[in-house]
């Protein structure tokens, strides 16, 4: 680990100025991802600006929705009555992630910004385009069990590991950001980007942009939502695949639907195609299957040692169908 300076931020504006002014400075919130990366040598900052004291730790009712401060811990958010009642998909996603201890540390701002769990990304002795642009991708032809089936590029096939982010994608959440130029907000689904030629960039944030809050819009049917995570052990494991879904059914017909997938792409994957196919269709398994197939039409399995990841394609289909069926 390289030595670094550490400062406790005094306010958000100063924090943004400090980090944006220094290319190797970083924010630290819960530290559960960043401190891990410091030890692995994956991140080598020269300054850490601790933002836990200045980002809001409050969940507030705003305009019929919820406004979640970036400093709210994952455990507090999952325990929040309003989240449990009005956005169960989010509470479930949070509770399916990591462990009790980690959720007590992890923050609303840090969670969506955690980086891929690709084993090669985390191992500085192996080539990885995300860590060292241009060095190559060790995962292609390697261990791909946790890797992408959608939206990957020849430069990177990693997946985004967050559960919370999948739920937020399905909920049409908004991200509030403080930049050196001022405040800005945009849809959560635009936060992450596909790897393309620049897999080193996970998101569309600029260096020094600070997430200040996540906003959940009011939703008449988020109450009818569910998060289903499929993993290799019963707890304390990242998703192989996951499905976040909210379903609005009237008279046996799908009036509206939101679907996002986890463990399948470089971003939480909003399943627009499946949603499109479903609207107006009978709320039954046959429709769900068509929707899943539509979304999976573009899926590409990766070969690799230990069997590759082709199993994920049917797994997503089956999990998506089951999740929608259970919501009906």
């Amino acid at each position: 680990m390289k030595p670094f300076d550490y400062r406790t931020a005094t306010d958000m504006g100063t924090a943004v100025a400090e980090v944006s002014g220094r290319p190797d400075a970083r924010f630290v919130a819960g530290g559960t991802n960043l401190v891990d990366h410091l030890k692995l040598g994956v991140a080598e900052p020269d300054l850490l600006v601790d933002i836990t004291a200045v980002t809001s730790a409050a969940v507030e009712d705003r305009d019929g929705g919820l406004w979640i401060g970036a400093g709210v811990r994952n455990s507090d958010l999952a325990a929040d009555r309003r989240v449990r009642e009005r956005y169960p998909v989010l509470a479930q996603a949070l509770l399916s992630g990591a462990s009790g201890q980690l959720r007590n540390m992890a923050t609303t701002g840090g969670n969506p910004l955690q980086r891929t769990r690709c084993v090669y990304f985390q191992d500085v002795t192996t080539p990885c385009n995300k860590r060292v642009p241009g060095s190559g991708c060790s995962a292609i032809g390697g261990y791909t069990r946790y890797h992408a089936i959608l939206g990957a590029s020849e430069h990177c096939v990693a997946t985004h590991p967050s559960d919370m982010a999948v739920a937020l994608s399905a909920l049409d959440a908004k991200v509030h950001v403080l930049t050196p130029e001022g405040e800005r907000s945009f849809p959560f689904v635009d936060l992450h980007r596909l790897p393309g030629e620049k897999p080193d960039q996970d998101t569309r944030l600029q260096h020094g942009d600070l997430i200040t809050a996540i906003e959940l819009p009011p939703s008449p049917f988020a109450q009818q939502s569910r998060y289903r995570k499929v993993r290799d052990r019963a707890s304390y494991a990242f998703a192989l695949v996951s499905v976040a879904a909210a379903l609005d059914v009237a008279d046996g017909i799908v009036r509206d639907v939101r679907i996002a997938l986890g463990g399948v792409a470089h971003t939480p994957w909003r399943a627009y195609k499946a949603e499109q196919v479903l609207r107006g269709q009978p709320a039954e398994v046959a429709s769900y299957r068509l929707a899943a197939d539509a979304e999976m039409a573009d899926a590409r399995a990766l070969d690799g040692i230990d069997g590759g990841n082709g199993f994920k394609i049917p797994l997503v289909t089956r999990t998506l169908v089951a999740t929608l069926r259970d919501l009906t």
Binding site: T32, G100, L102
Partner: peptide, 13 residues
Amino acid sequence: GRRVLSCLTLAVS
């Protein structure tokens, strides 16, 4: 009072 992982907590914080 809350359970956390001390290996991912920077002492300076």
